[in-house]
């Protein structure tokens, strides 16, 4: 099996000199094509920063990252954007407030050089469970779940191989969360996508992912399969604590 994402010794920092703080320290992980990988941890543990480093949104990092066997440099190119797309945490912030759904999607399609844009937009909206009726609406005319569907449609527009999901459901209420998670699961099955999902919710990760990495203060403390996680077979005390507290919240 080929590796979709391969990261070794990734360190990401903000600030320089005395003000430098390392947000991510020496993280290594590899995700096979078609797999779904979860990254969990509390706020500030650096899990989202890993995604931002992959996408090139934070410039200061060291280590090595490979996507589909191509090493990543300082700049991302068109091939990268065609292979890797991201869904953001807050659907209220990730859509341009003055652009209709149609404008958002057609711009993405044009940037990737697709033709036949009208039909593609209709198909994308169909794929994420929105009808044609939503095509010419503005974000303020949509609910949170509908916005997140639009954001997913935009991420799917270039027909990527890898989706980076940055807590895609944490801003939504519970019933909508389930719909979005099911949509993501279906899309992965249909298209053979690779997911790298960041979440603080162990239930969501357990539902979606085959493998889970636990992060604490910028370091990866444990890597375990989802079966082990369900069986509570964690070795690191922090992971045990996380699992324990998430179980207690359910009971």
């Amino acid at each position: 099996m080929t590796l979709a994402i391969e990261i070794s010794d990734l360190t990401v920092w903000f600030g320089e000199g005395a003000a430098r703080s390392n947000a991510v320290r020496q993280v290594s992980l590899s995700i096979g094509e078609g797999e779904s990988f979860g990254l969990v941890g509390e706020s500030g543990s650096g899990k989202s920063t890993v995604l931002r480093a992959i996408t090139g949104l934070v410039p200061s990092w060291s280590g090595s990252m490979r996507i589909m066997n191509r090493p990543l440099g300082a700049k991302r190119d068109r091939t990268f954007y065609k292979q890797v797309q991201m869904v953001f945490q807050d659907p209220y912030a990730s859509l341009h407030p003055r652009m209709t759904v149609d404008a958002v999607l057609s711009e993405a399609l044009k940037l990737h050089g697709f033709g036949d844009i009208d039909n593609r937009i209709d198909r994308l909206l169909e794929d994420v469970g929105l009808g044609k009726g939503f095509r010419f609406r503005y974000p303020h005319q949509l609910s949170g779940g509908q916005r997140q569907r639009v954001a997913i449609a935009r991420a799917l527009a270039p027909e990527p191989r890898i989706l980076l999901l940055d807590e895609p459901t944490s801003a939504l209420d519970v019933s909508v969360q389930a719909e979005i998670l099911n949509l993501l699961t279906d899309l992965r099955a249909e298209r053979g996508l690779t997911y790298l999902m960041v979440s603080h919710d162990l239930g969501v990760v357990g539902h979606m992912c085959g493998q889970v990495a636990v992060m604490q203060t910028g370091e990866m403390v444990e890597l375990l399969g989802v079966e082990d996680m369900r069986a509570m077979k964690a070795t690191h005390p922090y992971t045990k604590h996380l699992l324990d507290s998430s179980l207690r919240s359910v009971r």
Partner: peptide
Amino acid sequence: NSDFIAAIRLQGA
């Protein structure tokens, strides 16, 4: 620094 600018950057704009 908002997400929708990050999103369009990721589309290669």
